[in-house]
Design a protein around this nucleic acid. Structure first.
Lengths: 156, 156
DNA sequence: CCCAATCTTGACTAAAAGGTAATGATTTGA
DNA sequence: TCAAATCATTACCTTTTAGTCAAGATTGGG
């Protein structure tokens, strides 16, 4: 249960675009520089994000990338979903061991936990937008904890 | 953000042991059979879980595996932690791109979200024990949602 | 004591994820 | 028109994760 490289770097690249003023863009080398990754890797990530409609790309001199929508209208749950090909529906097909289908198909004691956990994570992420990740760590941390009410969600 | 094969199968094997009566054990072929995985794979998982103190192994005829502690004293957060080598502390070292250290070291707008998400997941898992995963899907689902304080989403 | 059942362990192979490189397509501006 | 800057796409390589295999060690029973 951990964040994949694609999720981490993809999200970070989007946050860079979220810091831009209206009309400004960043090129692949600029994004790569700011996130400490290679241009090739940034290119792959932006290609995916462009394909999925999160960023707008313009080619040629003066080209670059910008967000396709306002940063305060893009939730992290949407982003994570496409960056990780996150499909809870296909879960049981992915973990069928050496069999063609999972032995627990029909009645499974684990599934509620897997599905429930996924809900909890998606729910938390759906309350955060890219815009809220722009700023100092201290500020973002305060926002996150206020939004999640983390200290009050301890077992009911 | 998804569960790894080792987490999934490891957890499932433990649940099998949790169904056993006091003093009973399961052999590798029996565990493998019940979870639809190979004996070799079950062997690797049980070796890890044994090393980490979750299960007791006895060799020789009449040997097999059993839980090292009562199933209602083993929380999923502990289990997941060892099955996935889950270390949030090392996160920033793992995602430093092509650099030696992450470019955001010192002040990072993403870290609060990563750390917070990890807390949320661990918190949810720490409230569930192996014992609570034994039973029908319907029962387990009810337990999970009662514990987490969410509305049931299972359509039965 | 010896054999069969069982776990243990490390090396090996296979599959998936992560990342790179090279080539092609589009745009701008001299 | 042409060259430079930029994104797009696909093929390839590397690393990590997943899974298998075979030889070894331990235990219990005859």
């Amino acid at each position: 249960m951990k964040i994949s490289a694609q999720e981490e770097y993809g999200l970070r690249c989007l946050v860079q675009l979220a810091t831009l003023d209206e009309g400004k863009t960043l090129t692949l080398p600029q994004i790569a520089e700011r996130e400490g990754i290679s241009s090739a890797n940034a290119g792959k990530l932006m290609w995916l994000l462009s394909k999925e409609g999160f960023v707008k790309a313009t080619r040629g001199t003066k080209g670059g990338y910008s967000l396709a929508r306002p940063s305060d209208e893009i939730s992290l749950s949407e982003v994570i979903k496409v960056l990780d090909a996150d499909e809870i529906d296909g879960h049981c097909d992915s973990y069928s061991g050496v069999k063609d289908s999972c032995v627990h198909t029909g009645d499974c004691g684990i599934r509620p936990v897997i599905v429930g956990l996924h809900e909890i994570v998606q729910n938390a992420l759906s309350n955060i937008t890219l815009a809220q990740l722009v700023g100092s760590e201290k500020k973002v941390d305060e926002r996150f904890h206020r939004i999640q009410g983390l200290h009050s969600t301890l077992n009911i």
